[in-house]
Every structure is written in structure tokens, then in C-alpha cells.
Design a protein around this nucleic acid. Structure first.
Lengths: 176, 176
DNA sequence: CGATCAGTTCAATATTTTTTGAACAGAGAG
DNA sequence: CTCTCTGTTCAAAAAATATTGAACTGATCG
């Protein structure tokens, strides 16, 4: 009787550290972070990688990650690149091995800061230029509409400054 | 010399209310909201519709919207459905006309509440079930990993309650 | 009633985004 | 120097998402 390798992933006992495939706990953690990633508009693979590193006891290499999650090395490389760039993952250079190993940053403040700074702040910044242009156009609108559109653009400016003010507050709230 | 109809959209004088196409101010406003939509992971058409209604002096019908933005009636219908469901757009039943007319809700609090309640809250709710399962699995982990994974799951619970607590705070901050 | 209009739905299509995998670059090891 | 081992890049393929348009419902008008 031959081994059924197609189901080995879910059948492997939870207690055995595996080279490929996830145990039930890892699978659940990965799932949770995949969901989280989708909420904030990040690709699934990034959620998978972070989830696996988050729950893993030991730091993992790129090949570990690709193997365990059954994704390509390319995806793993790109995902790790993104996660490192936002500070969600650190490489803990382990001198025992030739290759880099990665571990999850688990401080909520650091995570939130990285995400907000990288994903949200640029949009708020670019909004400034947009508002300037809008303001000019609104001032040039025909008299019959001018009052209305000027008021709306003013409101947008309020929104903008609220959003800008919210960022540091958010970070502080999540901070400690 | 023939009229160049391919550029009529941008060439039409700002002062003439149009049946199709946007004037410069409208185009700029629509663009701004398209960008905003993409930040929060909503389709472009939804940003377009809201942006047009936001800057428009008068309420617009579904056909107005589809025509001005050059999108299909189907898109416009679906987009308006979503926007109404989150409270971002109201239909102001205008008894002069047979068809419904729509206008933008411009209160930041109402907008934020609708978005958070519809798009974020469900995820936070479903997270609860996930955490329960994770907790069980963590408790059943092999002794060598148990301390670590139990700690991580505890941390996730903290994150979860922070997120849940953040929602009402956010609404309050944006509120007045 | 039949005709027209306003709006919805949904399967097909188009578009955008993500993932893959093969080619490549650099860093040791032998 | 050459070979192998890690990791990156990027064009092509696959998957996910949004948009279209035609068929349909229901309302109002004549």
C-alpha cells in the first residue's frame, strides 16, 4: 500500500516539526493572518508568511517558508521583502547557517506604525496637492455653483487634516 | 475642420452643465475619491460615483451618473446600492420626476460609521471564533512549544480587544 | 391593456493583481 | 576558478475582481 502524499499536509501529527506542510495550529494561525491581510488589502501570501512566522517557535529561512506554505520562492522572497520594509519581520542573522532566518516582529505599535507609514501616509501626503488643485478649480467655478463647491472643498480640507491628525493618535493608542 | 470628439470631455467649458462628460472641477473631485476608494479597497466605480455626487450641486439620477461618468447602468446601480447600504448616499425622492435622485451624505461621522460597521466590524466579530479555536489548539501543542504558542495567542487576544475598542473611539474622533 | 421608462440582476468579459518559475547575481566552499 | 547554495527579478500565467450589457421586473403613463 502506497502513501497518500496528497493529504500528508493535514494528516501529519501536530507534534512532529515538519519540513513541508503545516500542523493544525499553524494552519489556523496562517488562516487568521490571511484574513487580516485581506482586510487591509494585502496579498494572501503576505498574510501566510507573517502568520507562519508569528506562530513559529524558531526563526525560519526563506526555503522553509516557501516549503511549509507551498508557495514559490519568488512569492516568499517578495513577501518577505515587503514585510521587512514595513518592519513586520526581522532577519535574525543566525551564524550557524549560511542562509538568513526570519522572525516576526510582534509589537503592535511597530506593526501599526510600519503599516500606517508605508500604506496610509503617502496617500495623505499626495492628498495635499490634490486639494490645492481642487481649491483653485472651485474658486473658478461659475457663480451659480461657486458657493456650493467652495464649501465642499473646505470640508475636504477638514477631512484631510482630521485624517492627518488621526495617524499619530492611532499609533499612540496601539502603542503601549 | 471637424470637431475632435475624443477630447470633448476635457475641452467643454466649466460653466456649462453637461449631459455627458465632466468639467475640470468634477474630474478632479472624482479623481480624488477614486484614489480614496482604492486606499480603502473599494472599486474605482464607487469612488467615481461618490466623488461626482459629492461635488455636484444638484442631486443626480442613475442615468445622469452613468452618462456623466461613462460607466454602465449596471455599474452605477451596483455602486449606488453599496453606497446607500453604507449610508454614504441618500436618495432624495424628488416628486417632480419619475426617477430617483441621489445625493452624497457629507457628514464624516456618518460616512466613517457606515464604512467601519460594514467593512471592519464583521471581521473583528469573526475573529472571535478564530481566537477560540486557536486557543484550544495552542493548549494542545507539544510541551516544547506550548509556552511560546500560548503566549502568542494571548497576544492576539490583546490585539483583538484593542481593535474592538478602537472602533468606537475612531467614530468619536471623527464625529464632531 | 400595451408601451415606455427606471432600475436590478447576473453571466460573460475585461481588467487588475498576484503568483509562478526560470534566468540571473553574488557569496562562500572546495 | 568553478560549483553550489541563497536569494532576487521579472516576464508570463493564473487567479481574483470589477465592469459590461442584455434579459428581466415592476411601475407609471396614455
Amino acid at each position: 500500500m502506497a502513501l497518500d502524499t496528497t493529504e500528508i499536509t493535514t494528516r501529519r501529527p501536530a507534534s512532529v516539526p515538519t519540513l513541508a506542510g503545516l500542523n493544525a495550529l499553524e494552519a489556523e494561525a496562517v488562516d487568521l493572518f490571511v484574513g487580516l491581510a485581506q482586510v487591509v488589502g494585502l496579498p494572501k501570501s503576505i498574510g501566510q508568511i507573517y502568520g507562519l512566522l508569528y506562530i513559529s517557535t524558531a526563526a525560519l529561512s526563506l526555503d522553509d517558508i516557501a516549503g511549509r506554505l507551498d508557495i514559490s520562492k519568488g512569492s516568499a522572497s517578495q513577501g518577505l521583502k515587503f514585510l521587512r520594509s514595513t518592519g513586520a519581520v526581522r532577519s535574525c542573522d543566525d551564524h550557524e547557517s549560511r542562509c538568513d532566518h526570519y522572525e516576526a516582529e510582534t509589537g503592535l505599535r511597530a506593526l501599526a506604525t510600519g503599516f500606517l507609514k508605508e500604506q496610509i501616509e503617502p496617500h495623505i501626503k499626495s492628498g495635499e496637492g490634490r486639494l490645492v488643485r481642487l481649491k483653485r478649480l472651485a474658486a473658478a467655478a461659475p457663480a451659480s455653483e461657486r458657493a456650493h463647491v467652495v464649501q465642499r472643498v473646505k470640508q475636504l480640507e477638514t477631512w484631510h487634516s482630521r485624517a492627518a491628525g488621526l495617524l499619530p493618535l492611532l499609533i499612540r493608542f496601539l502603542g503601549k
